[in-house]
Amino acid sequence: MNSTAATVEQADTGMDGKTILDVENLSIDFMTDEGRITAVQDISFSLKEGETLGIVGESGSGKSVTTRALIRLLASNAIVDDRSRIELTRRDGSRVDICGLTPGDRTLNQIRGGEISMIFQEPMASFSPLRTIGTHMVEALQLHENVSGAEAKKRSIDLLERVGIANAPERFRQYSFQLSGGMRQRAMIAMALVTRPRILIADEPTTALDVTIQAQILELLRDLQRDLGMAMVFITHDLGVIAQIARKVAVMYLGRVIEEGTTANVIYQPAHPYTRGLLDALPRLDAGARRLVPVGGDIPSPLARPSGCPFHTRCPQIIEGTCEAAVPPVTPISDDHCVSCYLHG
């Protein structure tokens, strides 16, 4: 039908790239009026050049907090555990631990937007209604590179065209509210990419979009990734979207990664009871089945975090006396596939 269609495997060039981001033992708590809440607990993952890592999880899984920590975009009541490390290999080859940087640090400002960019669910909130699309893009570019206004404008317009915005010079002069939802999302992607970041964090970038527009944006992100060779961390609650965009996926539940592997392994051979439950609970297009298999119970409140395996309160295969006693260790079950569950290993 068209030449740019590709499976995830073809778009993702990260299979043998160098590791550029190494997250180890990331734990984040928040102090709130109601007490100390654990949002993320002991998470480790790595990202190679040109690779896409999907992070899937429901409300309260900690997926957004995890990715916000990568550019230290955390609220002031956040407490990052001392053992946490987020090691970024920078453009010049030097390595820096983002957890060791303080807000306002020069290096941090260079990394934010310069090496790691982020796009969000709601593009309207990413643009000031008082400034044009062009002003945003030129400002971002000149903050990170020593380029003239004319050069910045040219690069911005080129990129607007690249993300599929018609009449790019005109759109450059317009405000975000003059664009349709899909166009706005494209403009936000262009703004995030104008500095040619090496890592793009996409936090539910298609969740608010209609399905036909979502398809366009997913294709665009895949094409851009292939052309620019950037790595991507893609957060979503939608496993179908993960299947189409990410070669690797981490499944999160209540602040922990409970299963991780290639998307094909995780979807075709889910090992954790929660992952299996999530897949069984998904409505299917081939109707007729009518009844769904819900994951029993509710997601526990973050104030009443279960001990041991966070899923044990809802798990149909709970091993009494074991699962609630301690957090299960991460067990490899094949190459590129590991699970944190006592049923394995």
Partner: peptide, 19 residues
Amino acid sequence: ALFSAIPRLDPQSTFEPVR
């Protein structure tokens, strides 16, 4: 077109939404 745009839960499928 609408149906073709639904992301399939199948990492090995080719995603080809009608443009």
